Structure formats: C-alpha cells, structure tokens
Simulated assay, not measured.
Amino acid sequence: MPTDQEPTAEQIAEVRTAILKKLEAEPPAEPFHPNDLKRLKDSDLWISKLLKIYEFDLEKTNTRLWDNLIWRQSFGVNDITVNSLNQEFLNDGSIYAHNKDRDGKPLLIISMKKHSKSRNLDDLIRIIVYWVERLQQETNLDKITLFMDMTGSGLSNMDIDFIKANIGIFETKYPYVPNYIIVHELPFLLNAAFKIVKTFLPEEALRILRVTTKKDIDQYVDKDNCLKLWGGNDDYEYKFA
C-alpha cells in the first residue's frame, strides 16, 4: 500500500542516477522522448510519486520507470494530438473529463452506455491516455478519479477486454494516478459480469473501488459536481474543448 511518507532527496537521486546510467550503458532501440528525459532530469515529482507507490523499493521503481519510458516512446504518448485521435470517440461523449470529486480530483468519465465491443480498442486507449496526460499536465501530476458511468448500459455495452485494458493502463502506466475507481449505477443484469471483472483487478484497484447509486454518490462527488443523470445538479452536456 502506498505511503504518505515522502522520499528523501538521496532516494530520488539514486533512481535518477540508475536510470541515466542504464540509458548510457544500454540505450533503447528507440531513444526516449526528449520531454520524458527532461522530466526525468529536471523534476523530482515523477520519481517521487513512483517511489511512494512502490513503497520506496528502489529496484522496483527503477524497473517500472524504465518500462514506463519504453512504453511512452513506443505508444507515442508525447506525440498524441487532438487531430491524431479517433474523432468520433473524441466527440461522442463516451470518454471525457468534467468536474471533480470531493477530494478535488478531476473526474475522468467513461459512459459505458455509449460503448460497444465493435469499437477499436487501441483507439479507445489512446483517448484515455490523451485525457490522463492532459489532466496530469493541468494538475501537476495530481490524482484522477476514474468514473465508470454505467447508467442505462446493458449487456451489449459490457466489454471485459476494454475494462481490463482501461484498468491495466492505470495499474502499470499511471500507478500513482487513481484516487478512486467509481462504478456508478451498475444495472442488476450486469452484476455477474462485474463479479468477473473484480477477479482480475489488482489489490490496489479493489482498495479504491466504489460502487455507487444516486442515493450515495454524493459521498464521493458532491451534488454540484454530479450530472443530473447521476442524481446531481449539473446539467452539463459534453462538447469537446
């Protein structure tokens, strides 16, 4: 379980030095993106968050940070632009950021009612990564609450591969990011499918998982930050901006 204790300057420096030495001794086939290298060299925040989530295990932090740098380069994280995304998925309100939870963390909302298994999974994950990166830049690497809005969804919308990939991105690529994972208004007929989903969730995800209804959502998102659809006061309708 992550700790509230802060890493020391020596621990941060040790991770940074280890990564830079490995970079010199074993340069990757695809050079790491200059933006990521700059963040690695010039800022303590990224390393600090990884050290905390991995409970100051320096070896594990080094391994996961290296793997993350490789993934960011191969996935093209720094090169994702609005124009490079699937425009239908970007504009249809199936994945978007809006409002904050009670802890002041941004909500990344996935409207499962608008999802179907026929959608291209890679395109969807790129949309997720776009929003996570955008929110991370806007909040200086603050946490995000993943809000899975199940309102009005049915069996045709339930896509275990999509949910797995979604959770996997947060587990392995952005492990320090999730504040809560909220599953809102889960229909009764999807209970069995959701039980299957829970079996592959890591312990950390289960710890922050909350299943809510209109009756109790305001424990995590106050009424003014809740859409009317969720039982709140906000009549917002999504339009990409």
Rank of each mutant, 00 (worst) to 15 (best):
I169F: 12
I80M: 05
I53Q: 04
F188P: 08
K228N: 10
I53D: 04
P27E: 03
K38Q: 03
D142I: 02
A193W: 12
F170G: 04
E204S: 12
L23I: 03
Y130S: 02
R210Y: 02
I169W: 11
M1Q: 12
E138H: 05
W71M: 12
E203Y: 13
L40P: 04
E204T: 09
K38R: 05
I208V: 15
L229N: 14
I128S: 00
T63W: 06
P106L: 00
K114M: 02
Y238R: 13
L189E: 14
S43T: 07
N120V: 03
Y174E: 02
E24W: 13
V177D: 08
G232P: 08
Y174N: 01
C226Y: 11
V183P: 07
V197A: 10
R207C: 14
A97D: 07
D36Q: 03
K52S: 04
F200G: 06
K49N: 03
A192W: 14
A13D: 14
D103K: 09
W71T: 12
S74Y: 05
C226F: 13
E14N: 11
K52P: 04
L189Y: 04
T172H: 09
I12P: 06
F89L: 15
T81S: 10
F162R: 06
P34S: 09
Q219D: 08
F89A: 13
R210S: 09
D216S: 15
L23W: 08
T145P: 01
I80S: 08
F147D: 01
E185K: 13
S156Y: 08
I144W: 02
N233I: 14
Q73I: 08
D4S: 15
T139S: 08
T61L: 06
Q73S: 09
I47Y: 03
T8W: 14
W71Y: 11
N78L: 14
I167Q: 00
D67K: 15
K49Q: 02
S153Y: 07
S118H: 00
K113M: 06
D159F: 13
V77E: 01
V129S: 03
F162S: 02
M112L: 00
N62T: 10
K105D: 11
T145W: 05
K198D: 06
T212V: 10
S84T: 03
M150S: 03
A97R: 08
L20A: 13
K41N: 01
D67C: 15
I163A: 03
D123T: 00
E55H: 14
A9H: 13
V197T: 08
D149Q: 05
E59I: 07
F194R: 08
T8F: 12
K114T: 02
I182S: 12
N91C: 09
P106A: 00
I47K: 00
A193F: 09
V211I: 15
T199S: 09
S84H: 05
D218Y: 10
H184A: 01
F75G: 03
R210H: 04
F56N: 13
V77Y: 01
K21V: 09
R102W: 01
K49V: 11
I95K: 07
R210Q: 07
H33Q: 00
N62R: 04
L190Y: 02
S111T: 07
M112C: 00
E59H: 01
